[in-house]
């Protein structure tokens, strides 16, 4: 059993030349937690991970593991295990020597190296192929070997940089669950970098959403989904993404061109965005009139693109209730499922 550390980032920034890859990040990861860093490429999530690992030195700010300040330490003194997107196994070494590498550097006695490598490899189900080289095993096995190499020195913190993105879709789902189970069983704190919102929501206790070098929101998957803090998070988290309509909030209504939606309760005034998730829109006999443009069957459900008063919306409906293209339908947008954002995209309610 590994004792995970908590991680505190304070005012962390990184500049490359004239570009700020990361701007003033404050974040706390609790011991034993799995946190996902989510965002599009170039958002600063991998930069943050490499800062925590010690590959990059921060331009400003502090990194603490528990009581220990580590931002001035060399990576080898940070007690961190890391899995890279390409796995970064050493092609000239067998899987055994790959996994043993961190222990050899620590001058662990031979017998102990042998038993620790074997038990870690057994834990990951690759104990029987340790004499092969990375090129002689499958992608999934390479990924396990990389994970074993990260875990063999029993780190306090496990860093995962897109560990699943090179796997086939089929094993990706099982690998997700397995990494989660392993992390929980071992009690190690973990940070997972991913651009796949489904992966982040499925695996993480909490998700930090990044965009253009800044933290947008740090919350549980549930809260992220139900109460996105701004339009970026709203559109990035969830697939298909939330419908965002730019328009004007008026007295008890929201208008965008010919589109009009009645509002109840307190709501903002003036320019802003109205958001609603595709699965929250209902097709009814009465309501806002709309025209069906495209119908995409997705198996259990169908994604329907509709147009109402010049506004295009995506609606997720049960497959058996799907309308036909060009059909005239009526939409119902439940008041409790609406999201309000002001003109800058910041959530203002409900």
């Amino acid at each position: 059993m590994i004792k995970g550390t908590d991680v505190t980032l304070r005012g962390l920034s990184k500049r490359f030349g004239k570009v700020w890859a990361l701007k003033g990040l404050d974040l706390e990861v609790q011991a034993g937690e799995l946190v996902a860093f989510l965002g599009p490429s170039g958002c600063g999530k991998t930069t943050t991970l490499l800062l925590i690992a010690g590959i990059y030195r921060p331009t400003t700010g502090e990194i603490h593991f528990g009581e220990r300040r580590v931002d001035h330490l060399h990576p080898k003194d940070r007690d961190v295990g890391m899995v890279f997107q390409s796995y970064a196994l050493y092609p000239h070494l067998t899987l055994f020597e790959n996994i043993a590498f961190p222990l050899r550097l620590k001058k662990v006695p031979d017998a102990e190296v042998k038993s620790r490598v074997q038990s870690t490899a057994d834990l990951l189900g690759i104990g029987h192929i340790l004499n092969r080289r990375p090129a002689q095993v499958s992608g999934g096995q390479q990924q396990r070997a990389a994970l074993a190499r990260a875990l063999v020195k029993e780190p306090q913190l496990l860093l995962l940089d897109e560990p699943l993105s090179n796997l086939d879709a089929q094993i990706r789902l099982s690998a997700r669950a397995e990494i989660r189970r392993l992390q929980r069983d071992l009690g190690v704190t973990a940070i997972l970098v991913t651009h796949d919102q489904a992966e982040a929501l499925a695996m993480a206790d909490r998700v930090a959403v990044f965009s253009t070098g800044e933290l947008q929101q740090f919350a549980t998957p549930d809260e992220l989904y139900r109460k996105p803090k701004n339009t970026f998070v709203a559109s990035f988290v969830g697939a298909p993404p939330m419908n965002l309509i730019e328009g004007v909030f008026k007295e008890r209504a929201f208008e965008a061109g010919g589109f009009r939606q009645g509002l109840e309760g307190p709501h903002p005034q003036g320019q802003g965005w109205l958001g609603i998730r595709p699965e929250d829109i209902e097709l009814r006999a009465e309501g806002t009139p709309a025209t069906v443009l495209v119908v995409e069957p997705l198996g259990r459900e169908a994604l329907v693109m509709v147009e109402s008063g010049g506004v295009r919306l995506q609606v997720l409906v049960p497959a058996e209730a799907k309308p036909a293209p060009d059909q005239q339908i009526h939409l119902h947008l439940p008041a409790e499922k609406l999201h309000y954002f002001d003109r800058t995209g910041t959530r203002v309610g409900p």
Binding site: L50, A53, G54, I55, H74, P75, K76, R78, V80, G81, M82, F84, Q85, S86, A88, L89, Y90, P91, H92, F101, P102, L105, K106, R149, K153, L159
Partner: peptide
């Protein structure tokens, strides 16, 4: 050589010199 491999070696506990000798040079 991939950068990630060298980063991996650094995180695994190697110094820059060890990375050169044990990872880069053999490759």
């Amino acid at each position: 050589l991939s950068w990630e491999m060298e980063m991996a070696a650094l995180v695994d506990g190697a110094s820059r010199w060890t990375v050169f000798r044990k990872v880069a040079l053999p490759l």
